[in-house]
Amino acid sequence: MAPWRRSVQETGGGSLSITLPKGWAKTQGIGKGSPMLIVNNEDGSLRLIPERGGKEKEVSCAIISNSPTLVRDVVGGYLLGFDIIRLESSEPFPGETVAEVRRAVRRLSGAEIVEELPRRIEIQVLLDPEVVAPEKVLRREGTLVESMVADASAALLSGDVRLAGSTAERDEEVDRQYFILVRMVRSAIRDPEITRRIGIHPLRLLDMRLVARFLESSGDEAAAIAGLVGEVGGLSEKTRNLLANLGNHALDLVRKSTSSFLSIDPSMSPHIFSLFKETRDLVQTIEGSLEDEDSASGMVVSKVIPRFERIAENSIDVAELTPSILVSASVSQK
């Protein structure tokens, strides 16, 4: 759409004013006396936002037809911020499909099946993006991933299958926190007033979305490590100590990179990058020690090592987001 051009007028008392485009004002329901918010952007431009505090929130509905991608479409509708997700089919839904939908909905925080008929299933999402604080969601996700990495490492060395199972179960809760944050970000993109009301800059919110994705990926890696518990046989004491050290490094990287991002503290970055280098060196040392292990155990350890590496790489990606936030903040204060 082409921009409108207006000339600035001077009113009484030295104030300056411009007129609003008539068509735009009509579309937005703006008339004489309508309250407007004027936001000063970091680049010096101004943003006009109609104040809609008195209007009821419109309920958005996604209608999804039965297909092989039905469950994936349900998750997509949730992430896109729809309030109601209605599933329809010309034939009764198979029992297996209904069960899959139920499992998917359980993974989506705030989502409930409110109607279940043979040819129609309606899901309602009662999650207000302005009620849940993004920082709390991200901190919760980070804490879950930390516990998963710690327990996956401990279970791997002890052969504790029960602890490994508990670790894998937490992966579903990590997904729930990730989905909440993605939904919040997309809702804020559709309605810029949300970021103003929750007091978070849109760029910061987008960075949170990235961090949540890195954490979710690290949770998947920890769950994969837990899945290999029981396959590792009698390792030498040297290799066991090296693996324990590798697990501790991965845990420290997750904890410190997440803390650095949430506290916007770049002073932690040098230590985090130094820790990452130590992790890389540890990986090389472990790979060299596998020649002394039996082939079966060595093969399992060779599957574990890349998982810890990816956790470390995800943590570095999180840490690298902190400096850019500070640059943005310093610009806004000028």
Rank of each mutant, 00 (worst) to 15 (best):
Y78Q: 04
D83T: 08
A104W: 10
R106K: 14
V75C: 07
P118L: 02
V98P: 06
S89L: 05
R103V: 08
Q124G: 08
A62T: 10
F93V: 01
R72A: 12
A111K: 00
G77S: 08
E96G: 03
E116P: 07
L127W: 09
V114M: 06
L126M: 13
S109N: 15
R107T: 15
T97N: 03
L80T: 12
E96W: 04
S67T: 10
L80Q: 11
E115D: 08
R72L: 04
L108W: 01
V105N: 06
L126C: 10
I64C: 00
S89Q: 10
V71H: 05
E96L: 12
G76R: 11
D83L: 07
P68E: 03
P129I: 07
F82Q: 05
Y78P: 00
R102K: 14
G95F: 01
S67V: 10
V132E: 13
L87W: 09
V101L: 01
V74E: 09
R119E: 15
E112K: 11
P129S: 02
L79P: 04
I63Y: 10
G110V: 08
I84M: 12
T97V: 12
S65Y: 14
Q124H: 12
P129G: 03
E112Y: 03
Y78R: 05
P68N: 01
E91T: 13
L126P: 02
A62Y: 11
V74P: 06
S67R: 05
S90V: 14
A99V: 03
V98F: 01
S109Y: 15
L80V: 11
E130L: 11
P118W: 01
L126K: 12
A99S: 15
S89I: 08
E112T: 01
E96C: 09
T69D: 13
I123P: 05
T97W: 00
L80D: 06
E116Y: 01
E100S: 14
I121L: 04
I123Q: 09
I85C: 05
V101Y: 03
L79S: 05
E100W: 00
I64F: 07
Q124L: 07
R102C: 13
E122Y: 00
S67L: 10
E116C: 07
L108G: 08
E115I: 09
A62M: 08
V131H: 13
E130N: 09
E122M: 02
R107S: 15
G77A: 09
S109I: 15
D83G: 01
V132N: 12
P92R: 02
I85P: 06
R106V: 12
R86V: 12
V132H: 13
I123M: 05
S89K: 07
I121H: 02
E112H: 04
G81L: 01
R120I: 12
